[in-house]
Design a protein around this nucleic acid. Sequence first.
DNA 1: CGATGAGTTCAACACGTGATGAATTCCAAA
DNA 2: TTTGGAATTCATCACGTGTTGAACTCATCG
Lengths: 204, 204
Amino acid sequence: MKRSGRRPGNQDTRSSILDAARRTFAEKGYDKASIRAIAGDAGVDPALVHHYFGTKEKLFLAAMNAPINPGELIPQALSGPREQAGDRLIRLVLSVWDSPAGTAALAMFRSALSNEWTARLLREFVITQILRRAVAELVLDPDEAPLRSTLVATQIAGLMVARYVLKLEPLASAGIDTLAAAIGPNVQRFLDDPMPEVFKSPGA
Amino acid sequence: MKRSGRRPGNQDTRSSILDAARRTFAEKGYDKASIRAIAGDAGVDPALVHHYFGTKEKLFLAAMNAPINPGELIPQALSGPREQAGDRLIRLVLSVWDSPAGTAALAMFRSALSNEWTARLLREFVITQILRRAVAELVLDPDEAPLRSTLVATQIAGLMVARYVLKLEPLASAGIDTLAAAIGPNVQRFLDDPMPEVFKSPGA
DNA sequence: CGATGAGTTCAACACGTGATGAATTCCAAA
DNA sequence: TTTGGAATTCATCACGTGTTGAACTCATCG
């Protein structure tokens, strides 16, 4: 028959490579995370990484594919009173990114800041999966949704940059309650405070 | 005597190298801006860059040193009614970054996002020259100044990332008036809206 | 004129990178 | 026990990087 030879057996290594990849991408970004460093972190020969995942781009995609699944988080952000949506968003974002499951998200973000290809990836992912599918739901006027949701993204991206990349104190070690109380209302204002009429036209 | 040999003559090249360096650093960030690319953009041999500036780090410092001088901008941000300080800050930041003089600032920012050394540089510069010297002046309670000024930095950094790095639409092509009207009030709120009492303790 | 030294270029080194393909180990099916 | 094929490693390639030092050009001074 066709089936013969060694069974897939030790597939721990494959997932330990993925873990190391997520860690390293999150810490150094796409470009500076070398295949050799990832392999070293996983205790494995660099060539094995290529054997499993082919190219570095495919490895990155494989490392992102599994854990980034906002399907469960989005309802959590949408449920509850809409007057506290900003507060809820900040808490959600911070709790996800501070958790081990947020490593992939941090890897994606850090990479997108320095690499064009991953920037395109993040842009498409954020726009189609997050902004249009969740944040836009919170905006009443659909004409204003694109700009308003991008403004929310602005505040959240800035929080990420200051806290996780530039590590500006005292914000980097501030607690989640403090940040939610400070930033939540501003996100809320981006969602539903009245804005000038220029907002309706796309190329304002 | 000591003086002999060819006079400095054509010193255009030195400043054209600096211009090319600022352009390239702004476009690609510190790491991906190769000496060869900078030299090529200036129409010059790569070795000449080393002859003038020694190392790549020194070239970066030289490219940043001249044009980054917030001494004139800070009074502009502080003058005027304090209720419109947020609006003024956003307008100032956008007008500076969109102008050719803002190339150095954009170079600094892009580099800090992907390189540890330049991140330290930007952190020290921003904290000592911008936040403590200008934004903190706008905060009434000195105990709250550190966190409040960092929050302002959060919103501004996020605007930069979304507009210049990720290029999220429609924000990337939005006009300065739209953005000032949308974001200014949020900056204002970071400056002087009442905040929970946790703010006073540094490690909140 | 001839010497000096700045402006400029050329060729090369040492290094780290992503990637490739042959070689080796080793389990499980026949 | 033989053997096929997956798991894993080794050696190597081609390339781009920052950096270096020797060589060349040439305007100016003595």
